[in-house]
Every structure is written in structure tokens, then in C-alpha cells.
Design a protein around this nucleic acid. Structure first.
Length: 104
DNA sequence: TGCGTGACTAGCC
DNA sequence: AGGCTAGCCACGC
């Protein structure tokens, strides 16, 4: 149950990310009570990529680097999605990361 | 059953 | 400053 529970919580938090905002794996992990399991957050998102409702492109690593962009279709879909929301992305890194960061 | 792998982080050298 | 190591834990072979 805890495993599925973990995934469900990850999805729930990601769904709460406001338009034009981003957050980190670590922040989500901490929010759901598993601060050491940031990797699992990424894994959960990977498993959820089939679910169109999950805005996984709004989740990046703590430096604002688009570490998961290769899991999206194409070579720069993730970047395009973010830029479409007003977030500047350069060299796979979110610019003004601090200003766009959203704390769950 | 066991080992390698990964959308991560924090800390050490 | 930049690279390496160690924890972390679910999953596939």
C-alpha cells in the first residue's frame, strides 16, 4: 500500500503546481514525508508519463536542470512546454529558477 | 534472491 | 569551483 500511496501523493502534489510555476523532486519528496526519496519521485513521474493529466514538465531537479527531458517526446518538448508557460529555459536549465519555484 | 540502474541530493575532497 | 561518493528505494533481469 505504501508504494502505491507514495505514487498517489506524488501525483497529487504535481497536480497542485500552479500554471507557470515549477518545483523540485526533493521538495515533493519532503512534502509527502520521504525527503530522502527524491529518486522515487522521478521514478513515479516516469511511470505517470502515460497520464496526460500530470504536468511532469513542471518538475525539475534542485538546480533547475531539465534532467527528465529525455523522457518526453522529441528533443525539446519539455522546454517548449515550460516556455509556453512563460518560463525561460536555456541549455536545459530553467532561468530565474528561484522566481518560478513553487513550494508545495 | 541478488545486482545494477536511475526524472535526486547533500556532503566531502 | 568542480568532480566523486554515499545514502536512498522501487523495478527489471
Amino acid at each position: 500500500m505504501s508504494t502505491n500511496d507514495f505514487y498517489a501523493k506524488v501525483y497529487q502534489v504535481v497536480l497542485q503546481i500552479p500554471y507557470g510555476k515549477i518545483t523540485t523532486y526533493g521538495a515533493i519528496a519532503k512534502k509527502i514525508g520521504a525527503p530522502k526519496s527524491a529518486r522515487m519521485v522521478g521514478y513515479a513521474l516516469n511511470a505517470s508519463h502515460i497520464n496526460q493529466d500530470i504536468p511532469a514538465h513542471r518538475v525539475v531537479n534542485r538546480k533547475g536542470l531539465l534532467t527528465g527531458k529525455h523522457h518526453f517526446q522529441g528533443t525539446n518538448l519539455m522546454q517548449q512546454l515550460l516556455e509556453n508557460e512563460g518560463i525561460i529555459v536555456k541549455e536545459n536549465t530553467v532561468q530565474n529558477f528561484k522566481e518560478h519555484f513553487w513550494e508545495p
